[in-house]
């Protein structure tokens, strides 16, 4: 029970710390938004292996079939970074 209590206490302190860090990070996030504005950026740099995962919001309409029709997505990051909503909307 002591262990459970300790874990609960740790979780509560994590939640509090997360809130505190988030508040502290707001200034940094505003600074990043300014960088985005100044440079005219459109995407996060999370994966650099393929055009459509480096800039998902600027992806071609046919990115899933980049090489030829029925070609499977050959970049690992493509399996977790899906097509953007705007493209899904177009193909609905």
């Amino acid at each position: 029970m002591f262990f459970l209590g300790l874990c609960l206490l740790l979780l509560m302190s994590i939640l509090m710390q997360a809130g505190y860090v988030t508040q502290g990070d707001l200034a940094l996030l505003r600074q990043k938004a300014q960088v985005v504005k100044n440079l005219g950026l459109t995407d996060l740099c999370l994966s650099t292996e393929a055009r459509y995962t480096r800039h998902p919001s600027q992806a071609d309409w046919h990115t899933a079939l980049q090489s030829h029709p029925l070609a499977l997505d050959h970049f690992p990051s493509g399996s977790i970074i899906g097509p953007p909503a705007t493209l899904q909307k177009l193909h609905d």
């Binding site: 710390q17 988030t22 994966s47």
Partner: peptide, 18 residues
């Protein structure tokens, strides 16, 4: 998975939005 076949991967610290 995110890095895939790429060489570059950012070292980042995410803001803990929980």
């Amino acid at each position: 998975v995110l890095k895939g076949w790429a060489v570059l991967y950012p070292e980042f610290r995410l803001t803990p939005f929980i």
